[in-house]
Amino acid sequence: MPMSEPILAISGLDAHYGDFQALFGVSLTVEPGEVLAIIGANGAGKSTLMRSICGLIRNAPGAIRFRGEAIGGLRADQVAARGIALVPEGRLLFASLSVEENLIIGGQMGRPGPWSLARIYELFPILRERRRVPATELSGGQQQMVAIGRALMANPGLLLLDEISLGLAPVVIKAIYEALPGIVGGGMAAVIVEQDIARALSVSARVYCLQEGHVALAGNSGDVTREAIAAAYFGM
């Protein structure tokens, strides 16, 4: 069991899209420097959870606490200013901006920290070569690097990665995940939403499985059995 104060604490989160309730009493914690994986079938509420954390969906203030502060009711820009950055599903790069401008936008809040343009280019050298190219002209894998770099430029304390392998070739996914240890660590925690369960378990310390808006399983990534995941995933 974790000893230190969690960096993110979610308790009894109910999230709604209009009249539709997507999350029911979800509770989870993220420890400093930890990589947490969220798995679950389509429509289980994974993306809703990510959007709730970063303020794109407003919730009860106390349902989400970041470094002890109630942030559930804050606007997305207020949450971002406190140090939570999202790599959104589908990347959502800015098409009229170049690669470098996309990265600069990520750092426009001026939060201090280890990440800078130079350090992003060190992590993904191809982006330096292509920095003047419109971001959406890059290959899918390179676009994902821009999306990750753009989030890192905010020097977040918590990085949210939503389906970063979606639509990418396996070799590209492997390259991106190989860069992950260089990103997380140094105090930054991460929450990863991932369809590929084996991949999710291999990069994370702990895993939560969502099923129809409820937490169906929580455990250490090394300990959970295939049977337990199958049961939590499909509700059998």
């Binding site: 970063c54 303020g55 794109l56 606007r75 997305a76 820009d77 971002a80 200013a81 950055a85 999202l86 959104p88 959502l92 790069l93 800015f94 098409a95 009229s96 901006l97 936008i105 990520g106 426009q108 809040m109 753009r150 989030a151 905010a154």
Partner: peptide, 12 residues
């Protein structure tokens, strides 16, 4: 203009 959701999540 390109993507309001991504812009908001980046703190704009």
């Amino acid at each position: 203009r390109d993507n309001e959701l991504a812009a908001r999540s980046l703190g704009i």
